[in-house]
Amino acid sequence: LTEGPAGPSLLDSLQSCVESFFLGLRVKCLPSIPISSIHCCYRHSQDTDRVQLHADGILNFLKNNKPMDALCVLGLTLMDLYPCETWSFTFSKFLPGQEVGVCSFARFSGDFPQASCSSLNPLTHREQLSDASKESRERTLPFSAQEMVQCCKVTCHEICHLMGLGTCRWLQCIMQGALSLDEALLRPLEPCPICLRKLQHVVGFKLVERY
């Protein structure tokens, strides 16, 4: 997350949630990284006029800068992401075998724009990323309580992937996939009993203490 009006309070809430969800693990917030310093592709969104960042560039950066003592590293951004040219967007993506991932909270904000026309003024790659970075820093992104819950869900979902849990197809579970905002809203915050047992095996917490 870039350092801006929404950053610190959102990070505090996310850190508290993750520490409770993965009881027993220490959660550390690393310094924010300017978007312009990460070598990644970008494009204009197909349904908004916002710049989208290609998730793979961020993942490669995290892989190359992962602390030696980190179990996993999850990048967080207020900008929209896309995983490949054929997808319109993604909430998150991880790099299998490298324990790094990235999440976007852009579409959980109430001020995320609907479809509109893109700017007709062409900018260079550096100018567009610089403008996008500045916009991300200056936006307050007023998250409601419900929207904050969505941010927590996608964060915990992705960290579970980084710990080896796969997508759940059995019951109502935080590890269910979500390809739209509606699906993300319906996804619960807690794992199903099957995924909870997997998580307990990995983290080693006691169920009574966690709940």
Rank of each mutant, 00 (worst) to 15 (best):
T155P: 00
P34T: 05
R43W: 13
S109A: 15
C103K: 01
K153P: 02
P96R: 07
H125I: 11
D49A: 15
V100I: 02
F143E: 03
T48K: 06
S32K: 01
V149C: 07
N121L: 14
T167L: 07
A106P: 03
L141E: 06
P34A: 06
C151L: 01
P193K: 01
C173T: 01
V27T: 01
C40S: 15
A184P: 00
A145R: 13
L129R: 08
T2L: 15
V73M: 06
C41Q: 15
H54L: 12
R107M: 11
A184V: 02
L25D: 06
R187M: 09
K206V: 15
E127H: 07
L81N: 10
R210Y: 10
C168Q: 05
F143N: 01
T140Q: 15
C40Y: 03
L78I: 12
L207K: 11
L165H: 00
L129F: 08
S13P: 00
G177Y: 04
P5W: 11
D12E: 12
R26G: 07
S144G: 09
P31E: 00
L95C: 09
L141F: 11
C151A: 08
Q15T: 12
T48C: 04
L11G: 02
T77D: 07
L30C: 08
S119D: 14
T48M: 07
L74V: 05
K93L: 11
H201V: 11
L199D: 00
Y82Q: 03
M68F: 13
L162A: 04
L189K: 08
R107F: 07
T90V: 10
P5I: 11
C40W: 12
S13Q: 08
K66L: 09
S104E: 04
H201Y: 13
D47Q: 13
L62G: 01
T167M: 09
R43T: 14
P67M: 03
A184D: 09
P113I: 07
R43H: 12
R197P: 00
G24R: 05
A184I: 04
C41P: 08
R137L: 08
L162E: 03
P122I: 11
S144M: 02
L78D: 13
L10K: 05
P34G: 06
V51P: 06
P31Q: 01
N64W: 09
M175Q: 12
A70V: 01
A6G: 00
Q52T: 07
Q46V: 13
H54P: 00
S116P: 05
G24Y: 03
S119R: 14
L207Q: 13
L78M: 15
Q176I: 07
L196V: 00
T124Y: 03
I58K: 02
C29Q: 11
N60T: 10
T140A: 15
P83Y: 04
E147A: 10
S130A: 14
